[in-house]
């Protein structure tokens, strides 16, 4: 494990701009290996844009992003693909391929990048379904036959297909009921522990932040204004951060845990 220290993702001086609208400016952020980092920020502060930029779906205007110690924008397409198999992304509504069954969805990256026997691929699909807490009969179903929560789990199973080192989660608990959201939090936590995952999570869910995030990064004024633990957030003096972490909903979420 060489080439990069404890920072699995390292962003320096990032700038993103759409038309005349500057979304990020001089944004710095480090993600440590093996941590769960929660990204919070008001609507329109570019949380999802940041995620999309890191995984290469959006090209930044300026600045550098190093993942696994390598600036991916400087690589050729083939080299890039090598790195892309080392992370998984869970999009907001799962983004499962609607023409494939759930099991086939999970097997897509396996088929594309590896040369495995069909029997082993079926076993892996069944295994991942079990890991994310889906019943085995979900495998042959199509995404349209699943509920929103099940689609998210199936999307996570696909993101985990290649046993990635980093998973990016875009609002994983949005649209889930509180029980489902808590179960999802636990799932991420247990996967992180047993697989040694690094988790980069965009979220609005204060319960998730409190329950599973090792550190929290706050996006505001086009950059990351503070990164730290929940305790540090509570002490940090910035109007938006104060309102976010001391609002009535935050209080309820924090009280529930203490």
């Amino acid at each position: 494990m060489a080439g990069y220290g404890s920072n699995i993702i390292s962003i320096r001086g990032l700038k993103n701009q759409f038309g005349t609208q500057v979304v990020h400016e001089r944004l710095d952020l480090d993600v440590h290996r093996g941590e769960v980092l929660g990204i919070v920020g008001g609507s329109g502060t570019g949380k999802s844009v940041l995620l999309r930029t890191i995984v290469g779906l959006n090209r930044q205007r300026a600045g550098s992003i190093e993942v696994f110690g390598t600036d991916l924008t400087k690589l050729s397409d083939d080299e890039r693909r090598e790195y892309e198999t080392r992370w998984g992304v869970l999009f907001q509504d799962g983004a499962l391929f609607s023409s494939l069954t759930v099991a086939q969805n999970i097997q897509v990256p396996l088929k594309e990048h590896l040369n495995l026997s069909p029997a082993l691929m079926d076993e892996i699909a069944a295994l991942k379904l079990g890991l994310v807490g889906l019943p085995p009969d979900a495998g042959p179903k199509y995404p349209s036959e699943l509920s929103g929560g099940m689609r998210k789990r199936a999307g996570l199973a696909r993101a985990l297909a290649l046993d990635p080192e980093i998973v990016f989660l875009d609002e994983p608990t949005a649209g889930l009921d509180p029980i489902g959201a808590a179960a999802f939090d636990n799932l991420i936590l247990s996967l992180k522990k047993s697989l040694g995952l690094t988790v980069f999570m965009v979220t609005h869910d204060l319960d998730s932040l409190q329950a599973i995030c090792d550190r929290i990064a706050v996006l505001s004024d086009k950059r990351v204004i503070v990164v730290g633990t929940m305790e540090e957030m509570l002490r940090f003096n910035h109007p938006w951060v104060r309102e976010y972490f001391h609002g009535p909903r935050a209080r309820a979420a924090l009280d529930a845990k203490t």
Binding site: A126, K128, L131, P136, D137, S194, L195
Partner: peptide
């Protein structure tokens, strides 16, 4: 160390899956 935990998790996950339709 670590593999133990992983083995547990995998065996739990797969225990549920041997009843394919």
């Amino acid at each position: 160390s670590g593999l133990d935990q992983l083995l547990d998790q995998v065996s739990n996950a797969y225990a549920d899956t041997d009843t394919l339709p």
